[in-house]
Nucleic acid binder design. Structure first.
Lengths: 219, 219
DNA sequence: AATTAAATTTAGACAAATCTAAAAATAATT
DNA sequence: AATTATTTTTAGATTTGTCTAAATTTAATT
């Protein structure tokens, strides 16, 4: 028997939050990520622990087991392959595909995903610039740096963003900051974290906050 | 707020069973269709009736309201468009797509379905030969007759089947009876309902039961 | 028409996933 | 170290969809 939609979302959330400190993800962090209550998270952590998909200790936090990581990574693979399909094959825009892929990632069929991968010609990155794990769960890497780290005069290409909120992506689209765009840094003020840059021969201001979520491949 | 996965399946089941008598679908018929208990069906019928998606009278049966029919027809449209995608674009076989489409039909995004329809170039029939409702819910019709009605010497093309059980479809695939195939009737015994016909220059026997579920377009 | 059979509904219970409010454990501050 | 604040867990209730068993209604038979 497979996992429920909900269980899968918990595993994905834990994977997403696993980047931090010692790999232990807190109850509150998961609750925030999934917009649910801490009490609900505790219940589910027990359940996933019983299934040996996470290692969990009361009051300490949780981390994925190998089995849990395999499942979560496969979900990421499916999500990102579907995003490529939606943008590349169906012509949707960059900022409207996340919520649909969030549904499509739960479709159960390995044969379907293998064939989709083949049809799309084995893409390595999704439309937001994030790497797509292969069938064995391995990621490709690409040298990238947050836009906020660039110094005056440096140039590069937008390859992706770290957030996937629709509002944020729409905001960037309106400014012309979509993957593939060439940019050049004009001023990057170290004190008030305000940034000024050039895209498509137009000058643009950004907050340091926003800039730290835009990933650049240096030229 | 949209409907749940389960509610959608009930509406689809009622639509599927609506062909019969006076359009009233019985509790037991729905229970059999969905492999659930009659008691569960009764509960759900009340719920769908409260939402004005079906007209329901205790002990009498249920029928779809206009609103319910619209939703159910849209589900059928999504299911069949996805089947075309799976076969035509991803190269899956005729007999393995039903269960996957059963999941995909619940994905919520009108924009996605419109674009899929465009990408597939507005197909009118799915790989099993069933008509695909357009965005307004209208079906195309195609003159067709069950294989069991053909008389000796008549020829035609297989355009679809009535069943969608994987085992049944696999059985037909093995015999070479897939949509598009030209067939010619040899003998159709009115008494023991046994049929003999030619496909791909090979002779074949079929039971009347099986033949009545294979639809033919006469030449 | 009375009885039997079948279909349908009600009653009560259960599992999954969620919530709020209160209790317990851990972390931070004075 | 003692107190306060934060985080996490427990307790108990709720919703959705399901089930079995019993009661009721409708249909079929004798």
């Amino acid at each position: 028997m497979g996992l429920s939609y909900v269980e899968e979302n918990y595993l994905k959330a834990i994977l997403k939050l696993s980047g931090v400190p010692d790999g232990l993800v807190s109850t509150n962090a998961i609750a925030a990520q999934l917009s649910t209550s801490a009490a609900s998270v505790t219940d589910m952590l027990k359940k996933l622990s019983d299934k040996d998909l996470i290692a969990y200790q009361r009051y300490k936090g949780a981390s994925l087991t190998n089995a849990g990581q395999r499942i979560a990574t496969h979900l990421v693979r499916k999500h990102r392959l579907w995003e490529v399909f939606l943008v590349q094959t169906l012509g949707m825009t960059w900022d409207e595909v996340h919520d649909i892929a969030e549904q499509l990632e739960h479709i159960q069929s390995d044969s379907l995903i293998d064939r989709l991968d083949t049809f799309l010609e084995y893409p390595k990155f999704d439309p937001h610039g994030d790497p797509i794990p292969n069938a064995e769960g391995k990621y490709s890497v690409r040298a990238q740096v947050p836009l906020s780290k660039l110094t005056e005069g440096q140039q590069g290409i937008v390859i992706g963003v770290r957030e996937d909120e629709t509002a944020f992506l729409k905001h960037l689209s309106e400014k012309g900051l979509t993957p593939g765009k060439m940019i050049r840094m004009l001023t990057n003020d170290a004190y008030d974290h305000t940034i000024r840059l050039v895209v498509d021969d137009k000058e643009l201001n950004l907050s340091g906050q926003v800039a730290s979520n835009i990933m650049i491949k240096l030229k």
